[in-house]
Amino acid sequence: MKPPDANPAEVFDPLRPRLLRIAYRMLGIVAEAEDVVQEAYLRWHQTDRAAVRDAEAVLVRTVTRLCLDVLKSARVQREQYVGTWLPEPIVETVEGDDLTLTLMMALERLSPLERAAFLLHDVFGMDFDEVAKAIDRDPAACRQLASRARSHVREARPRFPVSEGQGRELASAFFTASRSGDVNALQALLAQDVVTYSDGGGKTKAALNPIYGAEKTLRLFDGLFLHSGLALSKLVYEGAIDGLPAFVTLEADGVLQTTALAIEEGRIVAIYVTRNPDKLQAIRRAVGEEVS
């Protein structure tokens, strides 16, 4: 890579999308990722850029270390979070990787260093010497960190994933069944061990704990249909959220909501519902013209 120019933005701006992707994958919150990248930009201004041989390596290192600092305090915040914590949903395809919402949830169970080593090496293609510099550990330790993380991700990765087309069809069928009160149609879509996660963050109504099993999930959606006006849901987006078949709705109570589905062997094995308005600003911008 050519040495940095005198103009800091000229080098930084082309790298900003990659730095944002790294920060988002590390933190799971768009606003926090944007703050980290902006802080990295301010530090880049203050850097002796003439002495920098590889600007991208330096900036990735800066962003990674800032993310690790954020994660230290985030652990405490998430322990105090009201209900289930889900990563902030985004509709963009992220760099063509296959790190879906389900796998991001698996990364939440890792230490910050394990998460950083795995993401930088396995997702963003950095060699372990570069990873070692980024997280201030030796390459052998980074290999161990990434290996432990990889085993967690392997366990969470779907064994029999469906095609994009099948995923869209199932998501559409799920929307129709859940919003029409058709319990039989809904039951046919669910795996017996399906889990429903709902993130309201204490800001909107949502189940505080995961709902396990098809029977309880059916009761949940039947109750929501009868008492919460699911039939009045307005569909504003169909597509993918963090790599999963998904849709966005404006619900009867005026809350914007995302629903993403993990699917194996043609059945829904996990339902991720995000209702916390603090986590839906990026979604609102993406589908804003449809929300009224």
Results as ranks from 00 to 15, higher is better:
Met1Thr: 06
Asp5Pro: 13
Glu10Gln: 13
Glu10Tyr: 12
Val11Phe: 12
Pro14Leu: 12
Pro14His: 13
Pro14Phe: 08
Leu15Asn: 10
Pro17Asp: 00
Met26Glu: 00
Met26Lys: 05
Leu27Lys: 03
Val30Cys: 14
Ala31Gly: 13
Glu32Ile: 13
Ala33His: 09
Asp35Ser: 14
Asp35Arg: 11
Glu39Ser: 05
Tyr41Met: 15
Tyr41Ile: 13
Leu42Asp: 09
Thr47Asp: 00
Arg49Leu: 14
Val52Arg: 01
Asp54Thr: 01
Glu56Ala: 10
Val58Gly: 06
Val60Asn: 05
Arg61Leu: 08
Arg61Met: 04
Lys72Leu: 05
Ser73Leu: 03
Val76Thr: 08
Gln77Pro: 05
Arg78Pro: 10
Glu79Ser: 12
Glu79Lys: 14
Gln80Ser: 02
Tyr81Thr: 03
Glu88Gly: 06
Val91Ser: 01
Val91Ile: 15
Glu95His: 01
Asp97Gln: 08
Asp97Thr: 09
Leu101Asp: 09
Thr102Cys: 07
Leu103Phe: 04
Met104Trp: 05
Ala106Asp: 12
Ala106Val: 14
Glu108Cys: 06
Leu110Glu: 07
Pro112Cys: 10
Leu113Phe: 10
Glu114His: 02
Arg115Thr: 10
Arg115Ala: 01
Ala116Arg: 03
Ala117Ile: 12
His121Glu: 08
Val123Ile: 08
Gly125Thr: 00
Gly125Lys: 01
Phe128Ile: 01
Glu130Leu: 00
Lys133Leu: 05
Lys133Pro: 06
Ala134Asp: 04
Ala134Thr: 06
Ile135Lys: 02
Asp136Thr: 07
Arg137Leu: 00
Ala141Met: 08
Arg143Pro: 05
Ala146Glu: 01
Ala146Cys: 02
Arg148Ser: 15
Arg154Leu: 06
Arg157Val: 05
Arg159Lys: 13
Arg159Tyr: 07
Phe160Gln: 03
Val162Ser: 05
Gly165Pro: 08
Gly165Ile: 07
Gly165Met: 13
Gly165Cys: 11
Gly167Asn: 00
Glu169Asp: 07
Leu170Ala: 14
Ala171Tyr: 07
Phe174Lys: 09
Ala177Lys: 00
Gly181Ile: 11
Val183Ala: 10
Leu189Asn: 11
Leu189Gly: 10
Asp199Ala: 00
Thr204Ile: 07
Thr204Glu: 00
Lys205Trp: 02
Lys205Glu: 08
Asn209Gly: 09
Asn209Cys: 09
Thr217Ser: 15
Thr217Trp: 13
Arg219Ser: 13
Leu220Ser: 13
Phe221Asp: 07
Phe221Glu: 02
Phe221Gly: 00
Leu226Trp: 06
Gly229Leu: 09
Gly229Cys: 11
Leu232Trp: 09
Ser233His: 11
Ser233Cys: 11
Lys234Leu: 15
Glu238Ser: 14
Ile241Met: 12
Asp242Arg: 00
Leu244Trp: 03
Pro245Asn: 08
Leu250Cys: 12
Asp253Gly: 04
Gly254Pro: 03
Gln257Ala: 10
Ala260Lys: 02
Glu264Lys: 09
Ile268Lys: 02
Val269Trp: 05
Ala270Tyr: 02
Tyr272Val: 02
Pro277Ala: 02
Asp278Gly: 12
Ile283Phe: 03
Ile283Val: 09
Arg284Ser: 15
Arg285Lys: 15
Val287Cys: 14
Gly288Lys: 05
Gly288Pro: 00
Val291Met: 14
Ser292Leu: 14
